[in-house]
Design a protein around this nucleic acid. Structure first.
Length: 641
RNA sequence: GCUGCUGUGGCUCAGGGGUAGAGCACGUCCUUGGUAAGGACGGGGUCGCGGGUUCAAAUCCCGCCAGCAGCUCCA
């Protein structure tokens, strides 16, 4: 007998060798039916429901309704898809096919290029396999024998996978369709193909074998699966909603920005987009006054010597633009930090001057490989809400805490309450000694812990001059976006030989904290467009009010109202054309103006505006004074209404 | 950069070896209409760029450029 402990703390005695499924059945028939596998002793991996329980353990039964259960379903769906593809194209060679956060994919090597139009045929084949409801069978196999077999079958990817496995681990394959389909796999899988209730194939794209761009490119077929048709439908609708909110589409429709072939990956901000850009800068400047930053303006193009000193020539050259004139070479700045070091060095500094916080909205240029740019979220020219803090060693903790406070305050304003934190350590391409890096990494880690932040470590993902903390927010569609960053740097100050006079009248080297809150304004605007679906809060909306007339009879009055609103500082647009009110309302709504004000004879009569909010909410008649008071309050509170 | 796909009026897209189409937008006129599209008429495109095949290329082929979905890389 073995003792199994259930999540509620109770325990049961079962005969050794009892399977997970049998245990579930002993608890209840309903549970047994829903069981897909189990988590033993809190392990990350899930075991098969046919796994015998040989020793005492704690067990958590995994059902389809849990995240882990969904993963099992998706993983099984990827096998079914692979089976379908192999049936359609028997020459296909399989590599890997895992479940992902949103669905699953399978990377296959196939001479025939699968087009999106062929996904339907694959889905149909999958539906047949699912309808057959054939059991998934697990089978442990011998390492050497299986290597031979996979090699003989030309399954070079599977063979390579086996070669990489720990020789002590058991190797297994899963079969379904009465052995017609077999795939190297650790499992677990659903009991039979019929458990896959709702799936959909989404797209096909290229992916390098093992993510290595020097290795062959395989075809990756993406799909998703859910526990029910309803959940699948909801997921597909989320995808549609994301498409509707795409900032590239809305940016064009709302006339925020354009792109042109003559400047790849570099936006042209139209008046409305430029307004938002400037409003964000103004917003940060307001915060800077409170948080003690001094703004500077620094050169765009600097002598190559500077970039050699900073380390950019060595470690960042591939991302930089260069130019040549007056018999000298120059680099276009990809970062502001070196110029800020020059400012620090421009006069003698005392420990009393520290921390020195410098902010810069300078334009940066970074060469990005052609395939990686996208809309505003990845561009070649951008502006960060950049800042560098020069401080003493003993001020690091306070300064980072301050940045985190500022960051939270800013994210709150935009309705990004959930922030995920990533801690990135020394990358391969880096400057400085091990000792300095250890100190910097320890410093940041302490700051994370002192500020009570839960974080995930990204080993080797730091900047070339120092480790960093990245702040990732979740938008209205629960998608992750990286915004802020805090980087601790002992290297740049050393390379620029920065120093200040300490209290003992000696020389000390300052520490440099690189930080950005919004990240790049370009990316932030792109994210904000999608987050708000173009419905910017009043303070950020390029146009706040659109005034419509019913007929020409109200023109004089309407013009006076518009002048009054403009005089009060509001951004007002008019539609005094000869269309009908229904059409004007429709256009105003599509333009996502926060307030629509209608003026007809009635409003002229009693000196009011007939108002409705962007969402459709009718506010009825209000005097211009009342309306201004309402606007004033909504703007000053930066309401998210 | 790699794989696949795409490029036709301002926008969304149809067409496809024989002198370019729709809807929306735009302009003019009619209409002065009370909360999601009133009507009529009209202007506007060397079909991304360059080469090739052909009697003839927007259409087929090649190259380049740009964009899209991913991969790899990043704010």
């Amino acid at each position: 007998m073995v003792t199994v402990t259930l999540p509620d703390g109770s325990s049961r005695q079962v005969a050794a060798g009892t399977t997970v499924l049998e245990l579930a059945r002993s608890i209840g028939a309903g549970l047994a039916k829903a069981t897909l596998g189990a988590r033993l002793d809190g392990a990350a991996e899930i075991v098969d429901l046919r796994r015998p329980l040989d020793a005492d353990c704690s067990i958590e039964i995994v059902t389809a309704n849990s995240e882990a259960g969904l993963e099992v379903i998706r993983h099984s769906a990827s096998h079914v898809m692979a089976d379908a593809i192999c049936q359609l194209w028997p020459e296909a060679r399989l590599s890997i096919g895992p479940a992902t956060a949103e669905g699953f994919y399978y990377d296959i090597d196939l001479g025939h290029k699968i087009s999106d139009d062929e996904l339907g045929a694959i889905e149909q084949k999958m539906a047949e396999i699912i309808a057959a409801d054939s059991p998934f069978e697990r089978c442990a196999i011998d390492r050497e024998a299986s290597l031979q077999r996979f090699r003989a079958a030309g399954e070079i990817y599977k063979a390579e996978l086996i070669e990489g496995f720990d020789p002590n681990d058991e190797i297994s394959v899963y079969r379904h369709g009465n052995g017609a389909f077999e795939d190297l796999c650790r499992g677990p899988h659903v009991p039979s193909t019929g458990y896959i209730k709702a799936f959909k194939l989404l797209k096909v794209a290229g992916a390098y074998w093992r993510g290595d761009e020097t290795r062959p490119m395989l075809q990756r077929i993406y799909g998703t699966a859910f526990n029910s048709k309803k959940e699948l439908q909801e997921h597909l609708e989320r995808i549609e909603e994301a498409k509707r909110r795409d900032h590239r589409k809305l940016g064009k429709e709302l006339e925020l920005f354009i792109f042109d072939e003559t400047a790849p990956a570099t936006p042209f901000f139209l008046p409305k987009g430029a307004f938002i850009y400037n409003a964000l800068v103004d917003f940060m400047r307001e915060k800077y006054r409170v948080y003690g930053y001094d703004e500077v303006i620094t050169p765009q193009i600097l002598d190559l010597e500077l970039w050699k000193r900073s380390g950019h020539w060595d470690k960042y050259r591939d991302n930089m633009y260069f130019t040549h004139f007056d018999k000298a070479d120059f680099g276009v700045k990809p970062m502001n930090c070196p110029t800020h070091c020059l400012i620090f060095r421009s006069k003698g500094r005392s420990y009393r001057d520290l921390p020195l916080r410098i902010a810069d909205f300078g334009r940066l240029h970074r060469y990005e490989r052609s395939g990686v740019t996208a809309g505003l979220t990845r561009v070649r020219s951008f502006c960060q809400d950049d800042g560098h803090i020069f401080c003493r060693d003993d001020q690091i903790g306070d300064e980072i805490a301050r940045v985190i406070r500022l960051l939270r305050e800013v994210y709150q304003t935009f309705g990004f309450p959930d922030v995920r934190v990533y801690f990135s350590t020394r990358p391969e391409m880096s400057v400085g000694t091990d000792e300095v890096w250890e100190k910097a990494e320890a410093g940041l880690q302490r700051a994370l812990e002192d500020n009570g932040l839960d974080y995930t470590v990204n080993p080797g993902d730091g900047a070339f001059y120092g480790p960093k903390i990245d702040f990732v927010v979740l938008d209205a569609l629960r998608r992750e976006w990286q915004l802020g960053t805090v980087q601790l740097d002992f290297n740049m100050p050393a390379r620029f030989e920065l120093h200040y006079t300490n209290a003992q009248d000696g020389r000390s080297q300052p520490v440099m904290i690189h930080r950005a809150i919004l990240g790049s304004l370009e990316r932030f605007i792109g994210i904000a467009v999608e987050h708000f679906a173009g419905n910017f809060p009043l303070w950020l909306a390029p146009v706040q009010v659109r005034v419509l007339n019913i007929s020409e009879a109200q023109l004089d009055h309407a013009n006076r109202v518009v002048e009054r609103l403009k005089a009060e500082g509001y951004r007002v647009e008019t539609d005094f054309g000869n269309g009908r009110i229904g059409g004007k309302i429709r256009e105003a709504r599509n333009s996502r103006v926060p307030y629509i004000a209608v003026i007809g004879d009635r409003e002229v009569e009693d000196g009011t505006l007939n108002l409705r909010r962007r969402g459709g909410e009718e506010l009825g008649a209000k005097t211009v004074d009342e309306f201004c008071a309402l606007l004033r309050e909504e703007v000053s509170s930066r309401s998210m209404l």
